[in-house]
Design a protein around this nucleic acid. Structure first.
Length: 466
RNA sequence: GGCCCGUUCGUCUAUCGGUUAGGACACCUGGUUUUCAACCAGGUAAGAGGGGUUCGACUCCCCUACGGGCUGCCA
């Protein structure tokens, strides 16, 4: 069996859309799970709208998502000569013809047909079967000589067998009168030349597939396996757009979702493999198949995204997580970790990652280790530091001085001091939290003490007891 | 307008003619706990509507409704 080759082919007209990210992910998963290749092509033939900034943003988005592509990024625009060459070859083969009709004439034709009450108006060029001796000395477009009768069948791995009547399709232009190729031709030529075996893309291209298949047929090329996946919708079921919130992949990075969680969530959005919910990318590669893709558009659910991310956060290795956390800080425009904070973070990640779902949440829980002395307690926390509590804290401090700094050693000391003062541990925890973190809601007091170390703990308790 | 695609709990989905329609998220209740969270246990909750086909339909067919896409010398 020949090697699987997939590709992602975005237009560089903006950031990487979350839907595009998912399309790329599906292609990546499919190829990587089968030892195939995943290629990247930028469809930049629209010179008006394409920008190098957008291309850079798309590459950044893919990189963040961890979707690595094989070989060089292909620029469709740079291949325009090749596209034109194929158009001329179609001319030579008789599967395309020169059309001298102007845009105005085409529009007039369609308007006339509609005026007659036609439900649809397929332009029928008078030049389709014209003798070359009648050709005027004027610019012309090259039109594909599409079959007028019969039907074109798309055997789609997701949508099933889709039948399009050929009479509803016009002779599409493959080369414009200015000599530039049209997208529909470019995709086919590029996919063929790049050896793409599986075209996995949004179902907004489903109808286009019929005309593209005609080009494959006209050139005698092997038609790739089609898989048109439904688009992602917003929570209200409408096409996902700006008003639903974030649509750009990079926005999700800035919101602090870990990439592994993002991949997992996006994989499960519109695709299923039995009851599998939480899995690594390696596992996803093994499971991923086209038949598991649903046919209905899926809606984005931030709650589930968060939950999925939480699992991946907990599964992550500390070193990798710290690295990703720092990348998040940069992308969110937040201050970088100082040396001290970084060292403490390394101690704390082991427990912080278990309860945080996103990086902002992790930073929030890490507030105690980010803070510098003196700790200024919030009003709620300050209430816990009454005179009695401060007395207990100052009694506690000397005992901590000589304790070995492990949970096992600390636990009896704190339990003891609570008992001596006739209070439960809960009552003792509140002032400790206030002293150490300046807050009433914090991670476990032991975890905090162990994270910041003896000297810092003692100093913070002393500050509070004063 | 025409053509194409879609419709199972609030959400993501399983089911590939016979199930008490399963799982996950969310939500609710209880437990655990040193606060929040996490965690554990339990619960509420679904086949768009109408016709067929069949002994039997979520599953197959048709119609309607709703949603989406395409309909360019855009991609």
């Amino acid at each position: 069996m020949s090697q699987v080759v997939t590709r992602f082919a975005p237009s560089p007209t903006g950031y990487l859309h979350i839907g595009g990210g998912r399309t790329a992910l599906f292609n990546w998963l499919y190829a990587r799970g089968r030892g195939g290749k995943f290629l990247l092509r930028i469809e930049d033939t629209d010179r008006e709208r394409s920008t190098p900034e957008a291309t850079a943003a798309i590459l950044r988005g893919l990189t963040w998502l961890g979707l690595d592509w094989d070989g060089e990024v292909v620029s469709q625009f740079e291949r325009r000569e090749r596209h034109a060459e194929v158009a001329r070859e179609m001319l030579a083969r008789g599967t395309a013809y020169k059309c001298f009709s102007t845009k105005e004439e085409v529009e007039a034709y369609r308007a006339a047909r509609e005026a007659e009450g036609a439900s649809y108006a397929v332009f029928q060029s008078p030049w389709r079967d014209a003798d070359s001796s009648t050709y005027p000395d004027a610019p012309y477009a090259i039109r594909m000589k599409a079959p007028r009768t019969g039907e074109t069948v798309i055997e789609d791995q997701v949508q099933g067998r889709v039948v399009i009547k050929n009479e509803t399709l016009d002779d599409m232009i493959v080369l414009r009168s200015d000599g530039t190729p049209v997208y529909m031709l470019a995709v086919v030529v590029d996919d063929h030349d790049m050896g793409v075996t599986h075209v996995i893309r949004g179902d907004d291209h489903l109808n286009n597939a019929a005309r593209q298949q005609m080009v494959y047929d006209a050139m005698g090329w092997t038609v790739p396996v089609w898989a048109h996946i439904p688009l992602i919708h917003g929570p209200d079921g409408k096409k996902l757009s700006k008003r639903h919130g974030a649509t750009g992949v990079e926005e999700y990075q800035a919101m602090g979702y870990p990439a592994a969680g993002m991949r997992n969530y996006l994989t499960r959005l519109g695709w299923a493999h039995g009851d599998a919910e939480i899995f690594t990318s390696d596992e996803a590669m093994k499971m991923f198949d086209l038949s598991g893709i649903g046919r209905a558009p899926a809606r984005l659910d931030f709650k589930k995204l968060e939950n999925t991310c939480g699992h991946h956060m907990a599964m992550a290795e500390d070193a990798a997580l710290l690295h990703e956390l720092e990348a998040y800080l940069v992308s969110a425009g937040r201050p970088a970790l100082t040396e001290t904070q970084r060292a403490r973070m390394q101690n704390a990640l082991g427990f912080l990652k278990k309860s945080a779902k996103t990086f902002p949440e992790l930073m929030e829980k890490a507030a105690f280790l980010l803070a510098d002395r003196p700790i200024v307690p919030e009003s709620k926390a300050a209430e816990a530091l009454d005179t009695v509590s401060r007395g207990i804290l100052s009694a506690l401090t000397p005992r901590l001085q000589n304790a070995s700094w492990t949970r096992e050693a600390l636990e009896p000391i704190l339990t003891e001091i609570a008992a001596e003062n006739g209070i439960g541990f809960g009552k003792l925890a509140a002032p400790l939290r206030a002293a150490i973190a300046g807050r009433s809601v914090t991670p476990s007091v032991y975890d905090m003490m162990l994270t910041i170390g003896r000297d810092e703990t003692v100093a913070r308790l002393a500050d509070a007891a004063r």
